[in-house]
C-alpha cells in the first residue's frame, strides 16, 4: 500500500446479547482503495460496516481518521459525514426518483444548480426515464442504481456497501458493478461486504476476511481459507 491510511480501526469489540460479534478487530483502510469484506453469515460484516458508518455503537474501539486515535463517540459525526453506508436493500424515500436523488445534495443550493446536478446523476446512473417515477415502485436493481447515484451526488470519502449485488440478475449486477468501478475511479474508497467475491474481482484491491469475530487481511486474488478453525493469517494490516 503506497497511499496514506484513510481510516485505522483498532481494538474494536462488539457484543450482541452477550455474544461477541467482533473481537479486537484491527483494520486499516487506504485512500482510493476498494476492499472486499467477506465472512460467513453472522460473522459481523454488516455490524462492522455500520460501526464505521457511525450508525452502530461499538463496545470499545479506537478510530484514527488522520487526526490521531480517538473513541468512536468522539468521531461519530465525522464518520457519518465522510462515509456513506448502503443497505443491502437500499431504502427509497416516499417520492420520485428525483426527490430521492435530491436528498443526497447539501441544502442551500439554488434550484437551478440542484436540478442540474440531479440531471447529471440521472444520466450517470442511466435513470433518465425514471426521473418522475415513484422510487418505491422500482426493481431491486434500479433501487441499487439510485442508491449509487445518491453516493455519486454526496461524494463521500468512503463507501460502505452491504451485499450490493445480492439478489440481482446478471444484467443488474453488471450495471451495479460498472457504477461502483466508476465511483472508485472518482477516488472514493470502498469496503464491500459480499458473499460473492468472484463478481467483485474487477473492483476490489484487497480482501478482508472476518472469522470468529476477527479480521484476517489478505491481498487481492489470494484464496480465502476454508474451515473456521484452521485459518492462518496471510497478512494482517496493522495500524
Amino acid at each position: 500500500m503506497s497511499s496514506s491510511p484513510q481510516l485505522q480501526v483498532s481494538a474494536l469489540n462488539k457484543q450482541f446479547a452477550g455474544r461477541p460479534i467482533l473481537i479486537n478487530v484491527d483494520l486499516t483502510l487506504h485512500r482510493g482503495k476498494a476492499y472486499l469484506l467477506s465472512g460467513a453469515n453472522g460473522a459481523g460484516k454488516t455490524t462492522l460496516l455500520r460501526i464505521i458508518a457511525g450508525l452502530e455503537k461499538p463496545d470499545s474501539s479506537r478510530f484514527d481518521l488522520g487526526q490521531g486515535p480517538m473513541k468512536w463517540r468522539h468521531c461519530r459525526s465525522t464518520l457519518q459525514s465522510k462515509t456513506l453506508y448502503l443497505h443491502q436493500h437500499p431504502y427509497m424515500f416516499d417520492g420520485s426518483v428525483r426527490y430521492n436523488l435530491g436528498y443526497a445534495l447539501p441544502r442551500g443550493l439554488t434550484r437551478e444548480l440542484r436540478n442540474e446536478r440531479i440531471d447529471k446523476a440521472l444520466e450517470w446512473a442511466e435513470l433518465n426515464s425514471y426521473a418522475k417515477t415513484p422510487a418505491k415502485t422500482l426493481s431491486s436493481g434500479e433501487c441499487q442504481r439510485i442508491s449509487l447515484a445518491r453516493a455519486w451526488l454526496k461524494r463521500p470519502d468512503m463507501l460502505l456497501l452491504d451485499e450490493p449485488t445480492a439478489n440481482l440478475d446478471q444484467e443488474s449486477r453488471q450495471r451495479t458493478l460498472d457504477l461502483l468501478v466508476a465511483l472508485k475511479q472518482d477516488g472514493i474508497s470502498m469496503l464491500v461486504a459480499s458473499h460473492d467475491p468472484a463478481h467483485l474481482s474487477t473492483l476490489v484491491d484487497s480482501h478482508i476476511h472476518l472469522d470468529n469475530g476477527k479480521t484476517i487481511c489478505l491481498e487481492h486474488q489470494e484464496q480465502i481459507p476454508r474451515g473456521n478453525s484452521k485459518i492462518t493469517p496471510i497478512r494482517r494490516i496493522k495500524a
Binding site: 453506508y85 436493500h89 443526497a104 445518491r150
Partner: peptide
C-alpha cells in the same frame, strides 16, 4: 416505520 429511513437520512448527510 422502517429503521432504514433514519439511517439512510443520516448517512446521506441529513
Amino acid at each position: 416505520a422502517d429503521r432504514r429511513v433514519w439511517e439512510t437520512a443520516r448517512t446521506l448527510g441529513a
